[in-house]
Nucleic acid binder design. Structure first.
Length: 935
RNA sequence: GCCGUGGUGGUGGAAUUGGUAGACACGCAGGACUUAAAAUCCUGUGACACUUAAAUGUCGUGCGGGUUCGAUUCCCGCCCGCGGUACCA
């Protein structure tokens, strides 16, 4: 009997659905294990071979844990709100829900084909009102909560209101002075108008309205993502883009910064991933210091207050609110020109380019320690979002300040003598203070403390912890997202809250929980309104009811989906307490490193927030994290000569002449081993029908190649469907794992897939010979056969735990080769080996399990136990080195003592030759490893 | 720019705590079976030098240094690819 993968896979796919093999309940008799996967966005193109990499790995892991006796939760769902479906809706008028449903269906088919063991009864979809009802519900909780710094946890806003009613703003951190600019008494509070009260509360709510800059493209009438902006122009159409302030929702994630940092210590994540989160949060200790201006003062944040005597000028961000006050009449024109230039640039560009740009405001501030007037400049390297948007510039001790001072001829005063620290860089907090009055002679560390004390004593500033992390923007001017469960109470001009950049006193009010979900309305057009509002503003019904017209961002639904899987159909709660107490949190999460500072921070914050309100049992949602790499595409490139318009075979293109050619993508379907099928290519596109091709001597037309993201537009997409049709799903799964370590990114190349295919057939042939005869016997295996078996299940088990799936495949190949060499077909060997293989190749394992005479599914069997007695070795073949170079080998008992080993080794022919018979200077013996003779 | 990550034969990769570099597989070459092909099986395969052969030697893990009896692995300095950089998901 042949290995007919298509029949086998079809058969078991059906069986698994019919028998609900992967359906899971909260079975308290077994230990729980939660294997979570990255939440996929269902794109219209379907899955390509890159997507399943992590899913195959997690599926193997989940199946392995199940065989090991765990009750495994392994769900899958869809993060289906997003731009692509909306873009398609704008182009074609198709409702995004329709596009999404189609894509989800296709994904599901592909998932099933690959043989994943997901419990589909727990699937979720963020665009389903039954799901986003709870996303809205959590948003309301955020809106109706504040962060109590004293208790260090989030709590209902009522607690804050009660405090205000009783004590006014006294004793609240952060202070009302800091948040709204003034303190107030209980009496004040009680006579404040409704909108005054709401305005104050807004500064404390965890979901709040504020103003922020966005990329505004007037020509497209829409707000753009940073990656839709290239060189200050819109990527689509090349229209000018500028920064524009708009009123929008934010999540006060900064209140959780310290706990997000602290929580990392308890997680089983890679240090790299933790570092990225730490750097993103960017906690730094320093001081806020006020510099006097002619009128008022300019506040800066600095981590190096010790350098204040070297502060020879100040720099403020181009968005700083004091600009209009600081700019003198003479400088006005120049400043306006500069700000216009800055507006055309994104934050990334502003930090990325090393260009030193800036402009003088014409005004001066006073250095509080030197008492000298220092000029105030505007420059783009100071970002408005960080600290106070203003810095004291110390050119002697900061590289960017130094470059700035050099370019604009500003004074530089040395303040730190680093001469006793050769090799110390400018950033190192090392050296002795000079030119710094009372700090002179102090070490930097001591000087920081001394100057902080002095700053606080003089009342010109105070110690402060600052975070690079900013509050998270939570509004999108898009259609395809969750509507906010918010209504405005109109105060003053009607609709003022709709004008994104207009001042508005309108009071946002949360809907009642009983009014959820607030269903996304149908609209006549998905196009933006042109004045910066979301397409929801096109719905007159919606606007008439004064609903918020912005929608939530993509990360809203994905910030809590892992909780919903525990209880996906619950319409009373987002998940029941009982079920959450059972599943707790994800034991392992397979997700890409690209989520390091986005999704993984938001989800942790949401979870901590729900934890504070007593709604979830664990304060961290993802105990262990695995970052799978990306599989990139390997595009085929053909070269067209710019002048002759002929396509030229790549082997004829001279290396230094590449720029004479235009590079075009050829569909990889027409390319085999880098050789183009010219006829197919001509047929493909009308305009290539009459193209001329210059081939090599052998008549072949060779393509170049490039590694880039797999995408439709690059014609380099390979789908799992194609691979499965050719080799089967078991082979596809194993090959994806065989490609290399899952954390690593690599281009897809199916060169080598035949190796895995051959393995599966070899494995099959241990059960059936060429003529279809059953080969498995009940004979007792030899020790040598047992050794192969136990060596393999030990190695495979360890490698799965370590997530080294690629070497598991090698181990199975080695075992098969070794058993074949012994002509071994014994049930006692093959049966346990088959169970070990089942997580990797679930279909063929199921088929052979049945053939072995079992009625149930192999995926509900028990993982074989390693019997160490077959693995004990008594001797070792020692490599013998002389001076670190391998010169001989010798087989010795493992329990032989060193002096005996030395005696035998020194007598070896080759050792004598390389030591010239000299006695060793040193004899290194590592038991069970190596021998090294040093002469 | 900043943060993170990776670089090993013709190719994908292995080497788990500093201990035989190249497991396993692809590709390639030669052979067996066959009328032939496919499939399957066997042998060889890092580079260079030397040799009839067996063997042997030198070099070799992006580049340049260092620590060590011993470095793909640890340290210092560089080069290149990839991911993130706050409205792609």
């Amino acid at each position: 009997m042949e290995y007919k993968f298509a029949e086998i896979e079809e058969k078991w796919k059906k069986y698994w659905v019919e028998k609900q093999v992967y359906k899971i309940t909260e079975d308290t008799s077994k230990p729980k294990y939660y294997v979570l996967d990255m939440f996929p966005y269902p794109s219209g193109a379907g899955l390509h071979v890159g997507h399943p990499l992590g899913y195959v790995a997690s599926d193997i892991y989940a199946r392995y844990k199940r065989l090991k006796g765990f009750n495994v939760l392994h769900p899958m769902g869809f993060d289906a709100f997003g731009l692509p479906a909306e873009q398609y809706a704008i182009e074609t008028g198709t409702h995004p829900a329709e596009t999404t449903a189609k894509a989800v269906k296709r994904y599901r088919e592909q998932f099933d084909k690959i043989g994943f063991s997901f419990d589909w009864s727990r699937s979720v979809n963020t665009t389903d009102p039954g799901y986003y009802k709870w996303t809205q519900w959590i948003f309301l909780k955020l809106f109706n909560s504040w962060y109590n710094r004293e208790k260090n946890k989030a709590e209902p806003i009522e607690a804050l209101i009660q405090h205000f009613e009783k004590n006014g703003s006294a004793g609240i951190a952060p202070s009302a002075l800091e948040r709204i600019g003034k303190e107030f008494s209980a009496n004040d509070w009680n006579v404040f108008s409704k909108s005054e009260k709401q305005n104050i509360l807004m500064h404390y709510r965890l979901a709040y309205l504020s103003y922020a800059e966005v990329n505004w493209c007037a020509a497209l009438g829409t707000v753009l993502a940073n990656d839709e902006v290239k060189d200050g122009k819109s990527e689509r159409g090349g229209h000018p883009v500028e920064r524009r302030k708009m009123r929008q929702w934010f999540l006060r994630i900064t209140e959780f910064s310290d706990r997000l940092l602290e929580g990392l210590e308890r997680l089983d994540w890679s240090e790299a991933m933790k570092d990225m989160q730490r750097n993103w949060i960017g906690r730094s200790e320093g001081a806020s210091v006020k510099f006097k201006l002619r009128e008022g003062e300019l506040e800066v944040f600095t981590t190096r207050p010790d350098t204040i005597f070297g502060a020879t000028f100040m720099v403020i961000a181009p968005e700083h609110e004091l600009i209009s006050q600081l700019v003198t009449t003479e400088q006005k024109a120049e400043v306006e020109k500069y700000i216009g230039y800055v507006k055309s640039r994104t934050d990334v560009e502003r930090q990325q380019e090393k260009k030193v740009t800036g402009v003088f405001t014409g005004s001066y501030a006073v250095n509080p320690f030197t008492g000298k007037d220092i000029p105030v400049w505007i420059a783009e390297y100071v970002l408005s979002g960080y600290g106070t948007g203003a810095i004291m510039a110390v050119p002697a001790d900061d590289e960017r300040d130094h470059k700035f001072a050099e370019k604009f001829g500003l004074p530089i005063i040395d303040i730190i003598d680093k001469s006793m620290y050769p090799g110390a860089t400018i950033e190192d907090k090392l050296g002795k203070m000079i030119n710094s009055d009372f700090l002179n002679g102090m070490e930097v560390k001591d000087a920081i403390k001394a100057v902080l004390d002095e700053i606080e004593k003089r009342g010109i500033g105070k110690r402060k912890v600052n975070y690079k992390q900013r509050d998270a923007g939570f509004s999108r001017q898009r259609y395809w997202g969750e509507p906010f469960p918010i209504k405005y109470e109109i105060i003053g001009k009607p609709d003022a809250h709709l004008k994104g950049d207009g001042e508005s006193d309108d009071i946002p009010t949360g809907l009642n929980e009983s009014d959820l979900p607030l269903i996304l309305p149908n609209v006549s057009t998905y196009k933006p309104t042109g004045d910066g509002q979301s397409p929801l503003a096109n719905s007159s019904d919606w606007v008439a009811q004064n609903y918020e017209t912005d929608t939530m961002p993509g990360y809203a639904g994905s910030s809590w989906y892992f909780l919903r899987y525990m209880d996906a159909d619950n319409d009373k709660e987002f998940a029941s307490k009982q079920k959450m107490d059972y599943w707790k949190n994800a034991d392992i999460y397979f997700g890409g490193a690209e989520h390091a500072v986005g999704h993984l921070l938001y989800a942790r914050m949401w979870n901590k927030f729900l934890f504070d309100l007593g709604l979830v049992p664990m304060d961290e949602p993802f105990q262990k994290l695995v970052n799978q790499g990306m599989i990139q595409g390997r595009s085929s490139i053909i070269y067209r000569h710019k002048e002759t318009n002929e396509f030229v075979s790549f082997n004829l293109v001279q290396q230094n002449e590449e720029d004479k050619y235009q590079k075009l993508h050829a569909n990889i379907a027409f390319v085999k081993d880098d050789i183009l099928d010219i006829d197919k290519f001509k047929e493909w596109r009308e305009d290539y029908r009459n193209a001329k091709f210059v081939t090599g001597k052998d008549g072949n037309f060779v393509c170049g190649h490039e590694v880039e993201k797999m995408s439709k537009s690059k014609y380099n997409v390979v789908t799992p469907d194609d691979v499965i049709a050719k080799y089967g799903a078991d082979c596809f799964r194993m090959f994806e794992m065989f490609l290399g370590p899952i954390e690593q990114s690599k281009p897809w190349d199916d060169k080598g897939i035949s190796g895995v295919y051959n393995f599966l057939r070899k494995f099959w042939r241990m059960f059936y010979d060429d003529k279809g005869n059953w080969r498995v016997t009940d004979e007792a295996p030899t020790d040598a056969e047992f050794k192969i078996l136990h060596k393999t299940i030990k190695k495979v088990g360890e490698d799965i735990e370590r997530l080294n799936f690629n070497t598991c495949i090698s181990s199975f190949m080695i075992a098969t080769n070794e058993l074949n060499a012994l002509n071994s077909n014994k049930r006692k060997i093959l049966e346990p080996l088959l169970i070990a293989l089942a997580p990797f190749a679930p279909f063929v394992a199921e088929e052979l399990w049945e053939k072995l005479g079992y009625a149930g599914s192999i995926h509900q069997a028990t993982y074989p136990k390693v019997e160490e007695k077959y693995l004990v070795e008594s001797t070792h073949e020692y490599p013998v080195s002389v001076n670190g170079k391998l010169r001989a080998q010798i087989q010795l008992p493992l329990d032989m003592p060193q002096d005996e080993v030395q005696k035998l080794v020194m007598e070896l022919e080759n050792v004598k030759k390389w030591t010239n018979g000299n006695a060793p200077k040193k004899f290194i013996f590592v038991k069970g490893k190596i021998v090294n003779v040093v002469v």
